[in-house]
Design a protein around this nucleic acid. Structure first.
Lengths: 108, 108
DNA sequence: TTGATGAGTAGGAAATTTCCTACATATAGT
DNA sequence: ACTATATGTAGGAAATTTCCTACTCATCAA
């Protein structure tokens, strides 16, 4: 459930693909998700566990199926982590823009 | 330089700490960065290499020192990756808000 | 109650990551 | 030229991750 869990969970392409499927197609049982992968069903199950431990998916049992759904909240924490870097980026762009303005002045 | 490299680079706490140092304190030589860590200098050097391969830092040689600076551009790609999940999140909040409005109507 | 189905767990092999201690390379100062 | 400094690279040990094949557990359907 920590930030570290989230970064670790996102490091795997398979797990990012799982999130994408849940985003685009909504909640689904584990087996239906596993069909989409070239890997064995138990492996997908373990990836789902990593995502669950990171709080990125939640499961609800329906009969013998387990439906997994996307939980976006931890990704909003990631957005917060990102925001100071975004400011840094914006400042850099602004400075670049100022510089280009000065160059235009020189031309004139 | 791919998205995969970026996610992988961010998976390590040491590498995230390096990015934070470069953000908060600006460009620095490798040695000064390494001082801040409990790990050996060569290990920090390898982490810097992973960050460089992901395009998250750039180096410039000054005499025998190598100054590393933050490159935020790949993080902006990460923000783009994040945005559909942010929409998902907003929609969910909006629906929750509607639901609460309905409950108020029921009370009245 | 029995057989089939959906899905997690166990145990382990292979690959990858992390970290270390030498060592190599390049530059600065004397 | 010689020494010290800043830093990357090599090679390898230990830990972790990934993925597999059995196997177990729970539920559904007859």
């Amino acid at each position: 459930m920590t930030a570290d869990h989230v970064f670790t969970a996102l490091a795997s392409p398979a797990r990012r693909e799982l999130l994408r499927l849940l985003l685009d197609e909504g909640a689904q049982p584990a087996g239906r998700l596993a069909e989409r992968f070239d890997m064995s069903r138990p492996s997908v199950s373990e990836h789902l566990k990593v995502l669950k431990d990171a709080g990125l998916v939640a499961e609800s049992r329906r009969g013998r199926e387990r439906h997994y759904r996307l939980e976006a909240a931890p990704l909003m924490d990631l957005r917060d982590w990102l925001s100071p870097y975004e400011h840094f980026w914006r400042d850099r762009l602004a400075r670049l823009s100022d510089l280009m303005d000065e160059m235009e002045d020189d031309d004139a």
